[in-house]
Design a protein around this nucleic acid. Sequence first.
DNA 1: ATAAAAAGGTTGACTTTGTCAACCTTTTTA
DNA 2: TAAAAAGGTTGACAAAGTCAACCTTTTTAT
Lengths: 145, 145
Amino acid sequence: MYTCKRTHEIRAFNRFYTDLLGLLDTHLLESEYSLAEARILYEIFTGREISASDIIQKLKVDKGYLSRILKKLEKQELITKKLSKGDARVTLISLTGDGVEVFHQLNNASDKQIGALITEMNITQLDDLINHMNAIMTLLQKSRD
Amino acid sequence: MYTCKRTHEIRAFNRFYTDLLGLLDTHLLESEYSLAEARILYEIFTGREISASDIIQKLKVDKGYLSRILKKLEKQELITKKLSKGDARVTLISLTGDGVEVFHQLNNASDKQIGALITEMNITQLDDLINHMNAIMTLLQKSRD
DNA sequence: ATAAAAAGGTTGACTTTGTCAACCTTTTTA
DNA sequence: TAAAAAGGTTGACAAAGTCAACCTTTTTAT
C-alpha cells in the first residue's frame, strides 16, 4: 500500500487548510451572513436563475435547511422566487439588486482577507501559489463525480 | 492592484477545497465524533500532555465549548485530566488507551476516504499532488503567525 | 387513462454546535 | 499585598443542521 505515508501528508494539508479556511470564515461571522448563506448567494449569482434542488446538488445541503435559508434571504429581499413555467414544482431563484450588492460586499471583504494573507508575497510567489492550487484541482477533479 | 484576479482564483480553490473537506467530513458524522472532537483528539495525541489553553490557541475554539467537549471525552474515558504540578490552574490532558484506539480508528476511516479519493492516481500524480500541497503550505505558512 | 412512484419544496420538532458572560481559583504583576 | 490576568467551569442562549411528515406537481408503469 504505497499510499500510506501519502495520505498522512494529505491529511496534514487538510488540517492546514481547514485552519486557514476557518480564519477566513471568521470575518464572515462579523458580516451577519453565514458561510452557507455566502455560498448560496454565490451559487445564485453564478447560476442566474437556479432552482433550490440545483443548490442542494451543488452544496449537498439539506433541503429543509436550504428552504429556510432561502426564506430568510427572500425576507431580506436579497433574492426573488418565481415559479418555473416548464415545471410547476420548481421555483427559480435569482438575486435582487440588493442581493447582488450584498454578494459583492461579501466578495470584497473576502478579497481583503485574502489580500492580507498574501500581502508579503511577490508576484512570482503568487503565481506559484495559484499554479499549485490549479494543479491540485485538476489532479483531484478527475476523481470526483 | 495586481492581486485582483488572483484572489478570485484563490477563492475558487477555497470553494473547491471547502467542498472536498465537506465530503471528507461527512463520514466523520457517521462515526459519532464531530470534526472538532477529532481535531481535539489529534492535538491531544500529538501533544501528549497538553493543556486546554494550548488547544484553545491551536484550534481557536471557545473555552467554554472546549471545556464541555473535554468533559464529554472524559466521561467516555478517552482522555484523562490531571492537575499540573507547576501551575495549579492548568489541567493536563492526555489520551487513555481507549482514546488512542479511537484516534487510530478515526485515522483509518479518514485514510480510507482519502484513499478512495486518490484511487485512480498513479504514483507520479500522487507525488505531484503532495508536492503542490507542501508548496502551498510553505508559501502560506510564512504569512501566518 | 390512471394509479403509484418520484421529485421539488415547506414545515415542525428536534439535536448538535457554538457563543457569551459570569464566576471561581490560582498565578502574576505593579 | 491588592489588583489584574490566566486557566477552567457553568448556565443561558443563539445558530446551524437534521429528520420525517406532508403537500403539490410531474413522471413512470401498467
